Computed example of a mutant assay.
Amino acid sequence: MTFPLEHHYVRTNGRTLHVVQCGPAGGPLVVLLHGFPEFWYSWRHQLPVLAAAGFRVWAPDQRGYNLSDKPTGVAAYRLSELGKDVLGLLDAAGHAQAILVGHDWGGIVAWWLAAEHSNRISRAVILNVPHPRALGQVLRQAPRQLLKSWYVFFFQLPGLPEWLFRRRRFRFGRGSLRGTSRPGTFPTEELSHYVAAWAQPGALTSMINWYRAALRHPSRTGRVTIPVQVLWGRQDAFLEPELAQLSLRHCDQATLTYFDQATHWLHQEESAEVNRLLLKFLGPELPDFPSV
């Protein structure tokens, strides 16, 4: 069965988020959390597949992105606030628990919620972002990862990252996606949607403020006790593959699947296999799981 993409505006944690929803109203809730510099559209290959399997799927533009509210000030992008946004979405959906699927920064939010609010999260799938403790460990011990993380420190500068991103019709942003992904992952017609999202008033500063808040207002992420599936593209230009394995040490129930030829953007490059693994891992949440 095919379900339409529904565009809604949902009030949560004192803010309004644009949320694309899909799937049967009574299905288990799956919340898809995008990363930088994306928005709900990054999940275009997963939304219809999860909905057809019986899940109710919500894919928000997280705060600061695209059509969602963009509060001013770095402190507004503390991890605890980002997590409260998601908890508020669960409340708005009328669900005591949900499944989280997070990529990049969305994965950081998912790690935090899985650790600190495990009563609200039944399962979590993390794509190409490590548990924060694993990242901290590697940054202290591996110069190679420190070099890969150069942009995190560049983003701390006031104004300059926004200027670089904006110039020549967002050439920096378009180049960063195409230059770190497999050829054909971001064709021109799809990049135009990204450019439109980046051009929203206040979006660039709000997006980059996630990085500024991470260093200025650090948050603790504890051990994860719920089931976790980690999916990781080995050709990630930003993160070392060993981070995935190290992340498992901070989980009680975790599995890891590497994609040897995929990059940081694996859910778009390997969408069919990612979707298959998602359905296999999330299937027990469905009443008719044996038939999935």
Rank of each mutant, 00 (worst) to 15 (best):
I226K: 01
D252I: 07
A254W: 12
D236Q: 13
G233R: 02
F238D: 04
Q261Y: 02
L278T: 00
L239I: 06
Q253A: 13
Q235Y: 06
Q253T: 12
A237N: 13
E273K: 08
P287S: 10
L278G: 00
S219R: 02
L243K: 08
R220K: 09
W265I: 01
C251A: 11
D252S: 13
W265N: 01
W265R: 04
E285P: 03
A244F: 12
V274F: 11
P287I: 09
R223C: 05
P241S: 05
T263S: 13
C251D: 08
K280W: 12
P241F: 03
A237K: 12
T225N: 10
V228K: 07
Q253H: 13
G233T: 07
E270Q: 14
E240K: 10
F259Q: 00
L286D: 05
A272D: 15
L243W: 05
R220N: 07
Q229A: 15
Q229C: 13
E269V: 03
Y258H: 07
L279W: 00
L231S: 03
N275D: 14
L256C: 02
L286I: 07
P284I: 09
G222P: 10
A237W: 11
E242G: 09
D236W: 11
V230C: 13
V274Q: 00
T221S: 08
F259T: 00
Q229M: 15
H250Q: 13
Q245S: 10
Q268A: 11
S219H: 10
L239S: 07
L266F: 07
Y258S: 03
Q253D: 15
A237T: 09
A254P: 09
L266C: 11
E242S: 08
I226G: 00
R223Y: 13
P227G: 10
L256K: 10
V274Y: 01
